[in-house]
């Protein structure tokens, strides 16, 4: 149903990419880490609930976790007469009617409520069923939130929604989105204030970047680009951005040392401190592009 956190004053900035492996997790974890040092409002969210990898870089014990539930039907088999109206209605094949009873397959259910509505015998009630977990960690001063969907659950949407609803009021949330342009990416991006699209200057990078641009224009979410591994390919991504009026807010060079530090599960802003400034500037530029950021960059230390 309604999505995202309605918390007043919350700003959601997503870091997204058209394909995996462009450096989305590298950039979002380092950005969150550096931004938190100057701005206590920053929280990191991993919305890639099928493969949450952010915790491999922002390492901390899970402090709190919460089970995510969704509504699924429960059959009162004393009332069920096996009429099969519910299983015929279900568009997702989540119900199977036998002679005088009905089986439920919660993993396939989309929680539409239709079966309870059409049952002529009042034999169906909706009950909560777990589909995943939201986990909260503290990594130094930085609060991180991620979600992980239970294996076997077909729809990841409720877990992404639960992660987004966990954003504390007044935060600036940096969201690591699922790659691609399919429904999990849409669920993460659709109500964000701003999106930073990560790409690389290669033909594959350009192709997948163009698909993401198409999607964000359709969703009417403002966005800008960041180009990773500059020097590896050519200028076609830069040229495309220029001709389409897409701002390039930051770049990272094709530095083999970055790949090596990343391969060990370390933050590059720790392992290669010369890159800190890139992320500090990037955060300031992102904040400038969120119109409701009335507070601007407040160097606050009053909340300690």
């Amino acid at each position: 149903m309604a999505t995202g956190s309605g918390s007043e004053g919350t700003i959601k900035i997503a870091i997204a990419s058209g394909k995996g492996g462009t450096g989305k997790t590298l950039i979002s974890t380092n950005l969150a880490w550096v931004a938190r040092e100057d701005d206590p409002r920053v929280v990191y969210l991993d919305c890639d609930v099928e493969e949450p990898n952010g915790h491999l870089f922002l390492k901390g014990e899970v402090e709190r976790s919460r089970v995510v539930n969704r509504l699924v039907p429960e059959i009162n088999n004393e009332r069920c007469d096996g009429c099969s109206i519910c299983s015929d209605f279900c568009a997702f094949n989540a119900l199977a009617t036998l002679k005088e009873s009905t089986l439920v397959f919660p993993e396939l259910c989309h929680s539409c409520g239709g079966c309870a509505l059409v049952c002529p015998n009042d034999a169906i009630v909706e009950v909560e069923h777990p589909v995943g977990t939201v986990r909260m960690r503290k990594v130094g001063e930085l609060a991180t939130i991620d979600g992980i969907v239970n294996i076997g659950v077909s729809s990841v949407t409720p877990v992404i929604q639960a992660v987004k609803q966990s954003i504390p009021a007044g935060s600036i949330a940096l969201l690591d989105a699922s790659p691609g342009t399919a429904c999990p990416a849409v669920e993460t991006l659709k109500d964000c204030d701003f999106v930073l699209l990560i790409t690389e200057p290669t033909p594959f990078g350009l192709n997948d970047f163009q698909l993401s641009v198409e999607l964000l224009r359709e969703l009417k979410v403002p966005f800008a680009a960041m180009i990773n591994r500059v020097g590896v390919g050519d200028n076609r991504v830069h040229d495309y951005c220029q001709s389409e009026g897409i701002q390039v807010l930051a770049e990272l060079p094709n530095d083999r040392r970055i790949a090596e530090v990343y391969s060990r599960g370390e933050l590059i802003t720790e392992g290669l401190p010369e890159y800190r400034a890139v992320f500090e500037r990037l955060y300031a530029m992102l904040l400038d592009r969120c119109p409701q950021n009335g507070m601007a960059m407040e160097k606050s230390n009053g909340t300690m």
């Binding site: 094949n93 199977a96 009617t97 002679k99 397959f105």
Partner: peptide, 15 residues
């Protein structure tokens, strides 16, 4: 052609 649950649907046909 079912998007999901083809086996569940087929089993009901046999029932």
């Amino acid at each position: 052609g079912a998007a999901q649950g083809a086996g569940i649907q087929a089993a009901q046909r046999l029932v």
